[in-house]
Design a binder for these strands. Structure first.
Lengths: 145, 145
DNA sequence: CCAAATACTTTGAGTTGTCAAGTATTGGAT
DNA sequence: ATCCAATACTTGACAACTCAAAGTATTTGG
């Protein structure tokens, strides 16, 4: 049974290693696009979290990026300098600021999405394999750990 | 057919989003362990890339971390301060430096591995699901993009 | 033997991250 | 109505991370 447990452990480790590797590889494939758009990967992630249909506050943005609110202040400053977002105080709660994509921001976000999909190795898998992968990953992600 | 293509694109995107989410969640679950070990996540990644049976040079370590050699100099300085690694010039090529884990480094690396396996949500999947996930991820990772 | 290539380090500048303190606004309790 | 605590964001200080360019040492090839 010890052998069985060891085998299980290394299997989990191998899966995790592949997940990390795929993340790294995808980021590497996106590096060119980020260079073209003059974005860092953190700035791109932030842009991604600002859904046009549900503009978040600074705080919600910090939560979805898993970082400190003050870090979002810094990142939002950069994105605002590049004319990709606006920050306006929420009329309903003047403490909060709502982050909205500008036209340029929307266009940049669309280019990101296209690059992500077309360059990823995931698109090399068959649709059936993609669905299977989605199902397994979703199950793992929604497990409480 | 346009509908079909759109469906494919969003499927790829959903899979990628899950991969990123799983990476984030795993890092979050590991955060406590990293705190205990007084390691940053970059330092942990570096430690992980130093396989005891194949001690890398600084340059190889930079390659496996996908970063600049000068960044590895910085990280290695930190790990050396913590007595987790040693840097010795390669007798066969005195330009190169070989990075080796100390006793403490080895022990820390083992604790990392244990935490990674036990805390990951991947371990909640059945062995069969884990094998299937491994197969699909491996296929994606080994695709040239 | 010498020029080019290689391996690493150093320096400088910008980004990312945390933490603590500060300002403004809100909400609830008295 | 007032006041205290909580909330939302910003600022400042500092450490970690990152790359690019320049510098040193060593090796290799012509």
């Amino acid at each position: 049974m010890a052998e069985r447990a060891d085998a299980d452990e290394s299997l989990v480790y191998e899966v995790l290693d592949l997940v990390f590797t795929l993340t790294d590889q995808t980021n590497a494939l996106l590096a060119d696009t980020l260079g073209d758009l003059e974005l860092t990967s953190v700035q791109a992630k932030a842009l991604w979290q600002i859904e046009p249909s549900a503009a978040p506050t600074m705080r919600r943005l910090a939560a979805s990026l898993h970082c400190d609110p003050s870090t979002v202040t810094f990142i939002a400053d950069r994105l605002q300098d590049k004319d990709l977002i606006t920050r306006e105080s929420d009329p309903a709660n003047r403490r909060a600021k709502i982050v909205t994509l500008t036209e340029r921001g929307l266009a940049t976000r669309r280019r990101l999405a296209t690059a992500m999909v077309t360059k990823s190795q995931v698109s090399q898998l068959s649709p059936a394999e993609q669905r299977q992968l989605k199902r397994l990953l979703a199950k793992a992600v929604h497990t409480t750990g």
